[in-house]
Design a protein around this nucleic acid. Structure first.
Lengths: 106, 106
DNA sequence: GTGATACATAAAACTCTATTTATGGGTTGT
DNA sequence: ACAACCCATAAATAGAGTTTTATGTATCAC
């Protein structure tokens, strides 16, 4: 056919990943995690959202692969998984058939 | 505060952009446009979707900046706007505070 | 064990997005 | 003007995602 390198399954995968980034709150969560790993309570205080809501968004991010969760006592530590972002950009490049390296853009 | 370089307005902007990519059909549209510009009728035949649906998705992509539309007679020619993708990746890098260049990933 | 803390999950209400069906506006050719 | 074609928009419906409220599970301290 005319597919640009990505299988149907991969298409659904990156679609879901883009969906996981379709939320101001989730982007804020990711931004907060750039400072390093964090538990849920700290994020709750930092972002001023309810705990169940935060938990739900963290689940979305985890299912998309953008964060990992690790139990430590009664806390759960979340941290960024940068490779997931790199993989997404890479798949987007394949879909578009171009390079998105932004050297010389600004 | 703790913002990683992006304003509230910019956050909403890239959130919307990610939302525009949260659709298998829209990714297929973008992939189809990598071959070059196209009118709506050709995309309709290629992707086998109804014309109003296609038109709606094209509007979403245009509002997000990923495609541009140009009238040519009674046709409207759509084409990719690669700078929008580069800008999005760039903003994502700012949000995460890292570089996403995928050199050496595969 | 009891109580307190940390996190996840379930159910319901709400909001946003996608799809269909029908119609309208603009352009070309006769 | 008329008919045919290309595309956009409106209204109605269906579906997916989000938020709240309430409850459950696991861990630590006592």
């Amino acid at each position: 056919m005319f597919d640009n390198g990505l299988s149907e399954k991969e298409l659904r995968r990156i679609t879901k990943q883009f969906g996981a980034l379709h939320s101001v709150l989730r982007l804020r969560i990711l931004a907060a995690l750039t400072a390093g790993e964090s538990n849920v309570r700290d994020l709750e205080l930092k972002l001023r959202v309810s705990q169940p809501l935060l938990s739900w968004h963290l689940t979305q991010l985890r299912q998309a692969g953008f964060v990992t969760a690790e139990r430590a006592g009664r806390e759960v530590h979340y941290r960024l998984n940068l490779d997931a972002f790199r993989g997404l950009v890479s798949n987007l490049e394949i879909t578009l058939g171009i390079s998105l390296s932004n050297q010389g853009v600004d």
